[in-house]
Design a protein around this nucleic acid. Structure first.
Lengths: 220, 220
DNA sequence: GATAGTTTCATACAAGTGTTTGAATTGCAA
DNA sequence: TTGCAATTCAAACACTTGTATGAAACTATC
């Protein structure tokens, strides 16, 4: 592997094009034109189009997952094996939100690519996401240790809702901006993180309200 | 328009196939084979493949939106123009969740189709979803009337989070089942609705906690 | 500087796609 | 029955897609 030049040019061009135009209408020919390499180079270096997409996605998600676990581990060590629930949730959704939101003009190609991946959900990416369960289980474990009185069901629902708010906000950030006529500031990433963590924490710590009677809520 | 037989056979076959296998790998030829009609019939009756998909999606979302507004209107009339926030939220997420969740074996084709539409987000469907903003504004208005002390920003975030939890739970219902090893019962739709409404209500009614300090949460 | 292994290249391939065409058929009204 | 429009049909069209091929160019080793 002499220089890797072609290989990395393909990766960079593919990520940029997918980020800008989505998986749907970017062909291999578009990518090799952007990268100034030969059409056959993609199959030579990656085997197939799907493997190219998979490599892009895996690289980025490994980075996010590592950051997530780093924050989680730090929090648990500091707390002697038990971290506060909001810190755990922040470790869960913070890296993803920070990676995907922020001022649009300075949003990295990688970030925009990950937004696309979260919106379009193409087969090779779905396959990888399905392997993420073990990773999420680590968070479920930490959450259980943090809230030992909480039932497993509640823990999983809390985890689900936290991810829901983070991912949906990323996916639909444009629509939320339009709907709120710019009042919701999605460039203030730390505010978004704080809002998601706050709500998810409430969901997990509010009195074990009878879920069948949602009118009774923890007020104030 | 003599009998409409061909037209509705195409619609039924398309919805079934898309529901089962997704938009990605269902071709017009698959559809006409399933419907036992000629290939050209699709373009004759619908103009194009995209218009066929759009018609399917529009039909279903009109039904859901009508149900949403019906519940909202009923609640506001009963409360003299001001409905409780959790009832509004229930009108927002209830119809969607009821339409998409429930025991898998009795899940209607329409429901499975809408789940697909929510997962894959193909161009004609995205175009339609973008027109949904007016519909959501009606709910934002009702929420504002219900919680006059709340800032617009908080209202929109609450609306966003409510939709987030509902849609993400639908999209990832399979993963949540696997992650929780079946402990989270997604067939109990009313429980899911109650959980989503409960958390969203908390998000909107909890003391105006400083969103920058999420550790302080409304406990019990 | 010959050689072997790697990488690049132009080109072709095979298959599948949505769409169009124009003739055949059908169904209904006069 | 005749005439006319609506519908159905088989076939082909035009195009795009990812992938494979085999020769050419390059690179490093001996």
């Amino acid at each position: 592997m002499a220089s890797d030049h072609t290989r990395s040019a393909i990766l960079a061009a593919a990520e940029r094009l997918y980020a800008d135009r989505g998986f749907g209408d970017v062909t291999l020919r578009d990518i090799v034109a952007e990268a100034n390499v030969n059409l056959a180079a993609v199959n030579y270096h990656f085997g197939s189009k799907d493997e190219l997409i998979a490599e892009l996605f895996v690289t980025r998600s490994i980075a996010t997952n590592r950051e997530r676990l780093r924050e989680l581990k730090a929090a648990e060590e500091q707390g002697g094996g038990r971290a506060p629930i909001d810190v755990i949730l922040r470790a869960l959704v913070g890296p993803t939100l920070r990676g995907c939101l922020g001022p649009e003009n300075q949003r990295s190609t990688a970030a925009r690519f990950m937004i696309r991946a979260s919106i379009e959900s193409v087969p090779p990416i779905r396959r990888i996401k399905n392997r993420e369960i073990d990773h999420l289980r680590k968070f479920a474990g930490a959450m259980r240790r943090s809230l030992p009185d909480r039932s497993d069901v509640d823990i999983y629902w809390g985890l689900n809702f936290a991810l829901a708010m983070a991912h949906h906000t990323i996916r639909e950030s444009e629509r939320l901006t339009k709907l709120s006529e710019g009042r919701c500031d999605l460039d203030d990433v730390e505010d978004v993180v704080a809002r998601v963590v706050s709500v998810a924490t409430m969901a997990l710590t509010a009195g074990k309200a009878d879920t069948k009677a949602p009118s009774k809520v923890a007020a104030r």
